[in-house]
Every structure is written in structure tokens, then in C-alpha cells.
Nucleic acid binder design. Sequence first.
DNA 1: GTTGTAATTGGCCGATCGGCCAGTTAATAT
DNA 2: ATATTAACTGGCCGATCGGCCAATTACAAC
Lengths: 239, 239
Amino acid sequence: MPITLGQHPAPESSPDSQSAEDAPRRRDPEATRRALLDAAEELFTLQGPSATSLAQVAKKAGVTKSLIHHHFGSKEELWTEVQERYFSEYFEAQKAMIQSSESTESLLRDSLVTYFRFLQTHPESVRFLTWTFAAKDDDHCPTKHEEELFELGIARIRESQAKGEIRADLEPFFIIKTLISLPFAWFQTHDETLALLDGDVEPQALDDLYLRDMVEIFLHGVRPADVAKEEAGGGDPEK
Amino acid sequence: MPITLGQHPAPESSPDSQSAEDAPRRRDPEATRRALLDAAEELFTLQGPSATSLAQVAKKAGVTKSLIHHHFGSKEELWTEVQERYFSEYFEAQKAMIQSSESTESLLRDSLVTYFRFLQTHPESVRFLTWTFAAKDDDHCPTKHEEELFELGIARIRESQAKGEIRADLEPFFIIKTLISLPFAWFQTHDETLALLDGDVEPQALDDLYLRDMVEIFLHGVRPADVAKEEAGGGDPEK
DNA sequence: GTTGTAATTGGCCGATCGGCCAGTTAATAT
DNA sequence: ATATTAACTGGCCGATCGGCCAATTACAAC
């Protein structure tokens, strides 16, 4: 047999089609780190951190177990890094969502629907966050991204409140909290809900039905009484 | 040393003060089962099922590990029984809550506040439910209690809708879903919220502030526009 | 009293866990 | 070309995992 050492599988392209790098480097610590983080994230999301063994992670990443300790030190540090990377991307995406809505008028509706659609198409996000909630990480320090996100949202809500589009007697922070809760809790208990209704409707349609009523309740709840009739009409909450 | 065999610790009383039973039975399979379920529930809630070893459970229950297999068969079956017992009590308590509100008028406010206070005083419930959400139990069959609970709530909401106290364009099931989501998600992310606000207010007061706004948003959201001003005035949402 | 049944114990098993270490190899600096 | 560093490998460790089994013991039925 040839003596080619079993480096990472899936070299992802022929040896002469790299984008930025020059050589097909047979040793690539960054790629190894990435492969390990990817594998760990997937397994942690699916099974949870404590049910996932380092052997599984190493196997899926295509490297030996020792490399985990070499790059991350321990399983707990790996879990920490996976969380940090995930939240970094997660909050970055959220930030883009908030800023994407140009008018403060439909800010809440847009945010609500966009977040709902995001969780709908990224069920692994719900699972991952659920694991982080379950695992009591004592040394939880809120990331800069998270703080930025809330401050950004609070600022925009204050604008809307000043314009009279949102009830001024509500604390912006709590408005955001309820806004996040409604889609997240729905998908967190999605399987149970489907089992409860037992196939009376297909999942996709059920999601849309819930979205409609949820948006109705939330928007109607945070809007001042005098403009309550403005956007009424039922219709499609999207677009 | 005396030859007294190390039976379950904490005999809970002097040998002549039993309530129903006659003898201080040195063998009590039901008590053993209960002790194991109690120990397992506490450890599972704290650490999660897969991070909890049977040795821990047995030690906390004051029996040997073998008894777990004798009474439950396997770790997974133990976890299943713990869940079943927990949900049984949980939904039973919820059912009592719903039925306790005699008037359909303040049904939603009462249910919302009562559920919020329940989770506030039973943080272990939030943790336990979070673990069950994270662990994908493939063979999840909704309990009779759960179905009853929803049917009961839906029926009462329909009454209120007929009386015009609740918007009739909303699906009762979704109203319940949002009602449950708002308190649960708050306490599920309680630690993160506290870390985010970083001691600007004490937890208890923060909870009350959130409760007030959350009740406002939800009730205002589900009430018809013409009676929106009825219960207004801010004040204490309790009682 | 005898017998049967089931609760209970301690010990043991193979498998697997996270972690460590000596040694090998590739990239880099000099 | 040589030395140095770090990525990487295979193998091994003690501990612990869930589970099993033979033996003992308490209780109930007869």
C-alpha cells in the first residue's frame, strides 16, 4: 500500500483550484480547527454536549482524537469555542435582520416574521440554543454581539414609540423579549405540537397559521389603541 | 458493629409514627421506586439525563445500582418513567389552575399570571422541560393529561370568544401556545437576561416588571378593539 | 414450618470515556 | 543544509460507564 498519510478526507477540490491559498498544504491547522468545530457543532446540536464523545467528533472531522486536545485543550473548551463561534454568527445574522427593515413602522412585523422564518429554516438553531439553556454554564458572559443586538433593537423601538407607532408604556427590552419568545417557543415544542394535533394539518401550513395569529396578537398588543385598526385585515403577514 | 443492614437512609420518623402502614417494613419496593425516581428526577433536572450516571442516582437514593435495573430495566426506561411521573403531576397542576379561574372573563389574565408565578417558584420545572425538549424522544406520545389540558383550555377560550371578551378571529390553540410561551421563555433565558442587564435591578423586581408588560401585550393583543380600554390602567396585574 | 417469590446486595464485565505522552512528520526560520 | 517549532499520529492510561449475575435475605402464601 502507498504510504500516503490519511490526512483530512474530502479535499474539496482538485489540487489546483484553491481560491486564496497557493499550495494544497498538507498541513493546515486552521482547516483542522474548522473541521473539528464543524463536526462538534453538528454532533453537539444533535445529541447534546455530554452525550457526544470526542472520538465521534474526531472521526467525523477525519482527524485523530489527540488533535482535539492539541487545538482546544479539553472537551469543555471545545464546547465553549463551538458556542462562541455559533453565537457570533447567530447574532451577526440577527443584527443584519434588524437593520434590514428600513422603516421603523413595520419594524416589529418584519423582525417577527423574519425571525420566525429563520428558525423555520434553521431548526438546528433551536436545538443548539436549547442545549445551551439546559447546560448551566456558570461563567456565562453575554457577548458583545448580544449586547449590541439588544441596544440596537431598543433604540429602534424607542424611535417607533416616539412616533406613536408603538405603545410608549411598554419597556422596549420586554417587547424584544416577547418578540423573540413567540417564534422560538413555537419551534422548540414543534414536535410535541405536531404529535398533539396528530396530522390534522401538514406542518408547513400549521406554521403559517400560527404565524398569522401570533403576529396578530403581538402587533395588536404593542400598538396604541387608536391605530389598532390600521393594518388590520387578516391577510398574508408576509411581504 | 451491629449487623443492621444499610437500608434506605432517612427513615423519616420514629418507628411508631407511621401514617397508614403498620410495620416499618424493612423491605418496601414502592418506597425504593419512589426514592429512585426522586433521586433521578433531581439529578436529571440538574445535569441532564446523559450527564447523570446510574451510580449517582443509586447513591443519592441510598440503594445499590442493581436495584435500578431491577425496578426499571435500563437507564432509558428510568428516564422515561421520570418524565411520565413528572408530566403527570405537572399537567395535573396546570389543569387545576385553569379550572380555578371561575369567571371566563379574567381567564387569560389569571392563567398567565398563575403560570408565570408557578415557573417563578419552580425553576426546576423549566430546566426539566428544557431537557425533554433537547432530548429528541422519538417515541413521544402526548399524554392524556396534555390533551385534556388543551381541550379544556380551548373550550374555555371559545366561551370567552362567544361572549366577545376575546377576539374571535384567533385560533384558541394558538392563544394557549402564546400564553405558555411568554412566561416559559422568560425563565428559560433568565440567567442570560440577568447577565445582560448586569445587576441594574434585582431579579424579583425584574420579573414583576416583565410580567406587567407581558400581560399588557398579551391581553391587549387578544382582546377585541372595542373593549381594549376596559381593564387598562397599568396597576398590579395580580389578584 | 416449609416453600416460593421478589427485593436487595456486592462484585464483575466489556466497552468507552476524556486525557496524556512519546514519537513522527511537515512547514518555517536561520 | 540544519535547527526549531508545531501539527499530527498511534497507543495507552485509569476511571467510569451501563448492565449483568450469583448469592443472600426478607416477606408472603400455604
